[in-house]
Design a binder for these strands. Structure first.
Length: 443
RNA sequence: GGAGAAAUGGCAGAGUGGUCGAUUGCGGCAGUCUUGAAAACUGUUGAAGGUCAAACUUCCGGGGGUUCGAAUCCCUCUUUCUCCGCCA
């Protein structure tokens, strides 16, 4: 969520940059939020003044009663409403009447204030993050900018098979069985298929740890506050599985629990950057995305992913984004998969991101690019919701920046490994994985 | 799941209706002393809104209530601890 103070002070800039994200109602929403905020501050002042008077009265009554000077109370009451005369014994009642009046006023002001704040909030949560100045213009994935390409696309013989056929041929993955147990999109990995999964998880975690990330094992169900903190709620509840009985959501990515570790936390500047990694299964309903690109491992309801998350000082976050991008690229190089890196255009970026790189591997039999990672800088968009802050050298509290990336998502890596490395004698396991799998060939 | 107890500032721990945003200790920061460090001493040290800056307001697990006035009393929710039951 954008900060209202920033929006207020940089309206033109905000509108200009929202246009890059093709956000339609920017002008109306921003203008209204700013005007509501002005009203809000006036109300706040008014309410504060009323409270200040009530507090002062209560305090004085306390002092008078404490000193036992009932006569003092009489004088006090007279000053309260100067031209009013009181009959005996009414002094205290007069004071009470005045505070009751104030209290009523306070309540009505606070109700209005609260409503105003909610209105502003409702408007602001609809506004996406501002894209970084380097984000290319564009509306569709066609407009993404390829910033890096690596590796040779293998040329496969005519007999080459897509991964879902290979998976069946070598008895690695049973899609039908998954349907029996759960439903479409919940495959069962078996034998070397299961072992390959486990090998990849361990390999990715070991690499992340070596790169300075601390491993965490978070819960894979989260509450509503967490869903809100990273921005899945209130908008995308339809994409998450929900356990109604306990009001918990199955995580769509480890980003949610790991980033929420830092919700309502004030960090010391020397603790930054915080680098966490974690393996979790991820659950996505993928409502409305059916078609042929869901074939095999291309799009699942449950899949495994290793996520890297960093909480950084604002002035370092873009440098860190590049480091994270290099880190993920390094993994793909080691796995010997041809890949490209895209800088997403304004129209293709996620709601919360300021700059995103997508990493896509070449899937040789399907002859298409598959997204296996997305590395983003959210700047202070998430941390504003999370209230994740740090104290700088001057003792001032500022919002941190948050970043995350997949490192990596397994299914499409597996798909690409199977397809690209297929030979007449079986599928060759990449060298770096052999010590994790314990076998060199799948046959 | 049943019974009881508790939830206060980075941590520990006072405070049971009236200058309490909160005693005190530890920790942190700054200074004095020292060649330097430690120790000792002095000062300082929560967050949010608001303001040019102040004033001022809010926050003692969350929400609601009683009262002129609540950290303090009442209701409710959540969490933690102890005991019992069940159990990987």
């Amino acid at each position: 969520m954008l900060q209202i103070n920033f929006v207020r002070e940089n309206k033109e800039e905000v509108l200009k940059r929202l246009a890059v994200k093709n956000f339609k109602d920017a002008d109306a929403i921003i203008t209204q939020a700013i005007s509501l905020d002005a009203e809000r501050r006036l109300l706040q002042k008014e309410s504060d003044d009323v409270k200040a008077e009530a507090n002062a009265l209560a305090k004085q009554i306390g002092e008078l009663m404490k000193s036992g000077k009932m006569g003092g109370i009489k004088e006090f009451a007279k000053n309260l409403i100067p031209n009013h005369s009181y009959s005996k014994g009414q002094e205290v009642e007069a004071i009470k009447a005045r505070t009751a009046e104030l209290k009523q006023k306070e309540k009505s002001l606070d109700d209005t204030l609260k409503a105003k704040e909610e209105e502003i909030h409702t408007l602001l949560v609809q506004v996406p993050n501002l894209p970084n100045v380097s984000v290319p213009l564009g509306k569709t994935p066609e407009d993404n900018e390829t910033v890096f390409e690596h590796g040779e696309k293998p040329t496969l013989p005519a007999t080459a098979q897509p991964h879902w056929e290979l998976a069946t041929k070598y008895n690695l993955i049973d899609f039908e069985l998954g349907v029996k147990l759960t439903g479409a999109g919940f495959p069962v990995y078996k034998g070397k298929g299961a072992r390959l999964q486990r090998a990849l998880i361990n390999y990715f975690l070991d690499k992340a740890i070596a790169a300075g990330y601390m491993e965490v094992q978070p819960p894979i169900l989260v509450n509503e506050d967490s869903g809100y903190g990273t921005g899945q709620l209130p908008d995308k509840e339809g994409q998450m599985y929900f356990v109604g009985e306990d009001k918990l959501y199955l995580i769509p990515t480890a980003e949610v629990p790991i980033t929420n570790i830092y919700r309502d936390v004030i960090l010391k500047e020397n603790e930054l950057p915080i680098k966490n990694c974690g393996y979790t299964p991820c659950f996505r309903r993928e409502a409305g995305s059916y078609g042929k690109d869901v074939r095999g491992l291309n799009r699942l309801h449950q899949f495994d992913k290793i996520e890297i998350v960093q909480i950084a000082a604002p002035e370092k976050s873009y440098q860190i984004l590049e480091e994270m991008r290099e880190y993920v690229a390094g993994l793909l190089k080691e796995l010997n998969l041809p890949f490209r890196i895209l800088k997403l255009c304004g129209g293709d970026m996620s709601f919360a991101s300021a700059l995103t790189y997508d990493m896509e591997v070449w899937s040789a039999a399907q002859k298409r690019w598959l997204e296996v990672s997305s590395v983003s800088n959210f700047e202070s968009f998430q941390t504003n919701r999370l209230k994740c802050r740090y104290k700088d050298a001057n003792g001032k509290t500022n919002l941190c920046h948050s970043l995350n990336g997949s490192a990596l998502a397994l299914p499409r890596i597996v798909a690409s490994l199977l397809e690209n490395n297929q030979t007449d004698n079986g599928i060759k396991v990449p060298e770096v994985l052999v010590k994790y799998t314990g076998f060199e060939m799948i046959n």
